[in-house]
């Protein structure tokens, strides 16, 4: 076998390792799926109301919450990578003739799978709450694709932060910071309802771009925001993917 087929089989082996962790801890998996649903219910019924939103709030809220869930995935990735790096097992991986990046690829694959599951569950709950898709199938799939693309960018930021910080204490700091950054978006409220400076910050938040484009696609009201929702995650990936891969390679120094 050549080096590149090893890269594939090793990545698959590492993905299976993550799935084996799921099988061992099904409760954790369920909790990770329930948490965003709870947020959706909370904002839908308890404290939401949708400041500045025209039309049905649930149609505004569900796409926003989907984007928010993808953003919060960053912290899940960071926790998992930090834990892995602080375990002795990483030393064994590094003394084996396995493909270098397989550890990270396994992480990404598992996280993307978890996110796809989370999206499915949340859309099902959203549907039960009255959220409807008016766009065609292509638009629907496009919206899901944009959400996962955004998640993929968050994933590599999470990996990079874990590699740079590398300590459980830093994870806590990021966990706290993720909240204001997540809410400083148009996920829950329309920027028009905010003070000007805040509205501008919110509009610039990459997450808002994704949320807006996804809303339009689900509603079938156009694709003018799709460009930004594709470009922003790609820019983030362009920065953090090479940084993370380089950082991982340097661990042995």
């Amino acid at each position: 076998m050549t080096l590149s087929t090893y890269a594939l089989t090793d990545s698959w082996t590492m993905t299976r390792r993550e799935l084996a962790h799921w099988a061992r801890q099904p409760v954790q998996v369920v909790v990770s799926l329930v948490f965003p649903v709870m947020l959706l219910l909370m904002f839908g019924y308890l404290i939401g109301g949708g400041r500045g939103v025209e039309g049905s709030y649930i149609d505004y809220l569900v796409p926003g919450m989907l984007a928010l869930t993808m953003a919060f995935g960053l912290e899940g990735t960071m926790i998992a990578v930090t834990q892995d790096l602080n375990k002795g097992v990483i030393d064994r991986f590094r003394t084996m003739p396995m493909a270098n990046g397989a550890v990270l690829v396994g992480r990404s694959a598992a996280d993307m799978l978890q996110s796809a599951l989370a999206l499915t569950v949340m859309m099902a709950v959203g549907y039960a709450l009255g959220w409807r898709v008016d766009g065609d199938l292509g638009a629907f799939l496009g919206a899901v694709g944009l959400l996962l693309l955004f998640r993929f960018a968050m994933l590599w930021i999470g990996i990079h932060l874990a590699l740079v910080a590398g300590k459980p204490e830093m994870v806590q700091a990021v966990q706290i910071l993720v909240w204001p950054i997540g809410f400083l978006s148009n996920a829950l409220a329309h920027p028009g309802s905010m003070p000007d400076w805040l509205g501008t910050a919110v509009e610039w938040n990459p997450m808002s771009r994704t949320a807006t484009a996804v809303r339009d696609l689900f509603a079938g009201t156009g694709t003018e925001h799709v460009g930004a929702a594709v470009v922003w995650p790609l820019v983030l990936l362009g920065v953090f993917f090479p940084l993370a891969v380089r950082r991982f390679g340097r661990l042995s120094k």
């Binding site: 390792r17 097992v89 064994r92």
Partner: peptide, 13 residues
Amino acid sequence: GLLGQHAALDEEL
């Protein structure tokens, strides 16, 4: 093969 100071195993499995 390496047997390091700390167990290099996947503790969850």
